[in-house]
Simulated assay, not measured.
Amino acid sequence: MAGMGTVPATQSFLAGEKVTASKLTAATKTPLDFLMNPPRCGVYTATGIPCASGTSTLVTFDTESWDTDSMHSTSTDISRVAINTTGQYLVTFYGRFPSNATGYRQLNFRKNSNGNSAGGSTMSTIALAAVNGSQTFVTRTFELNCLAGDYFELFAMQNSGASLTLDAGQRVTGMEFRWLGN
């Protein structure tokens, strides 16, 4: 794969130019390798996260499903997924709350918020009424234009009147990013 944060440029051939291995590699293999394994990151929490009623809670991600572009660290700023390669991304965020009949469950996806639920910019918020007798699964998928240096965090909120612990596990509470193109 090309250097992190760089979309490889394709090479052109001039009429009558001799084809060399290095030129052919630059023209086809390097861009195809990048496209076959584009920047992407999937993170989740392996430990339940307590969410007090009526309080926005920063969701941390201690486990990675994959990370092809050094977008996440499990030791520093573990709530963040950072963009290293500018482009359009397919973004999914999700969280599962335990069964409780009262109130709503909400996820707020923010850019450059520095761990502050009022900081940075809200990119997407989704709230659902609580589901009695079953978990409430909140999720959203959309395309987002991202610049290298941007980072994203997720905040959970619920108003059941009591603390609820956000469920843990792969494809249970997490975020996923996949580079689609420029």
Rank of each mutant, 00 (worst) to 15 (best):
G48E: 11
I49F: 13
P50C: 14
P50V: 13
S53C: 11
S53G: 08
G54E: 14
T55A: 14
S56L: 15
T57M: 10
T57E: 10
V59G: 01
T60N: 09
T60I: 12
T60Y: 10
F61L: 03
F61D: 01
F61W: 08
T63C: 06
E64M: 09
D67H: 02
M71H: 08
T74G: 05
T74A: 08
D77A: 14
I78E: 07
R80G: 05
V81Y: 03
A82N: 09
I83M: 03
I83R: 01
N84W: 07
N84V: 09
T85E: 00
T86G: 04
T86L: 05
T86E: 04
T86W: 07
G87W: 03
Q88K: 13
Q88T: 15
Y89H: 03
Y89S: 00
Y89W: 05
L90H: 07
V91M: 04
V91G: 00
V91A: 01
F93P: 00
F97Y: 05
P98K: 04
P98L: 02
S99T: 12
N100K: 04
A101I: 14
T102F: 06
T102K: 06
G103C: 02
G103K: 00
G103S: 05
L107M: 03
L107V: 04
L107W: 02
N108S: 13
F109W: 09
F109A: 01
F109T: 02
F109C: 03
R110Y: 14
R110C: 06
N112R: 08
N114I: 14
G115V: 12
N116H: 15
A118I: 15
A118C: 15
A118N: 15
G119S: 15
G119I: 14
G119K: 15
S121M: 15
T122N: 15
T122V: 13
T122S: 14
M123D: 09
T125F: 10
I126E: 03
I126L: 05
I126R: 02
I126D: 02
A127Y: 10
A127L: 06
L128Q: 12
L128P: 02
A129L: 13
A129Y: 13
A130H: 00
V131G: 03
V131T: 12
G133L: 05
G133M: 06
S134P: 02
S134R: 09
S134L: 11
T136V: 00
F137Q: 06
F137P: 01
V138K: 01
T139N: 09
R140V: 07
E143Y: 12
E143V: 09
L144C: 09
L144M: 12
L144G: 03
A148Y: 11
A148I: 10
A148M: 09
A148T: 08
G149K: 11
G149T: 13
G149S: 11
Y151I: 04
E153M: 06
E153S: 08
L154F: 07
N159Q: 07
N159T: 10
N159W: 09
S160Q: 01
S160G: 03
S160I: 02
S160H: 01
L164V: 02
T165I: 08
T165L: 04
T165H: 05
